[in-house]
Amino acid sequence: MNSTPIAPTLSDRFWRLANPKIFMGWSSKLLPWIAAAALASLCSGLIWGYFFTSDDMRQGSTVKIIYLHVPAALMAINGYLLMFVGALVWLIRRQHVSVLAAKAAAPVGMVMTLIALATGAIWGQPMWGTYWVWDPRLTSFLILFLFYVGYIALWAAIEDEDTAADLTSVLAIVGAVFAMLSRYAVLFWNQGLHQGTTVTMADGAKQENISDAFFQPLLLSMAGFGLLFLTLLLIGTRTEVRARRLKVLQARERIE
């Protein structure tokens, strides 16, 4: 491929970044910077949020949970989106790195979903008087969690790596369609049950209440969660690339 005299186009250059060897190169250079940025923004955002914000009039100090809850929820959804894109790129362009990135994203996304669910439940107890309500948002997150579990389980169950990559990608794409569908289904379901409960009102109030004083640290911790996700994604993908190479070498050794 390198011997072709034609100058590489921009898209060639972009896809070359996904070549495993080149990926290992640039990711190892980039990783310390992203990790440092993640740590810095996460720490400053959370410390700002925890120590230096005032309490909300209605929610008291529980408003501080928002600095964990919202970023985690954001990354839970973006994680699935990323898996979807990774799966598509793998099925269309057969870029190993992309499917390995999807594989590495799944456990992090699952943990983010768990954090969002757990902090939501802890916040809900004093605010709504219960840990869990079958509110549309909560329910969709529970379903999202199940999708993550299924995806990870399918990866673990299939021995052959390429087959596993293909099948999990098909699952991720079908799952994304059904996750969207579930989102709307759940909305319909709960509205049908009881319209305009205190739950949705509290939810709405939460949105209106975000003033700048709350918003700035929130933005910072959102960036922190995002960068942390990226850091773990890069680490995980690098691990998977190496693990893949390890398998190949071991197989070769057995033949020799």
Binding site: G150, F178, V186
Partner: peptide
Amino acid sequence: LLVLPLYVPSLI
């Protein structure tokens, strides 16, 4: 495990 989450919309 794979199929049940996909059944959610129909069930609802």
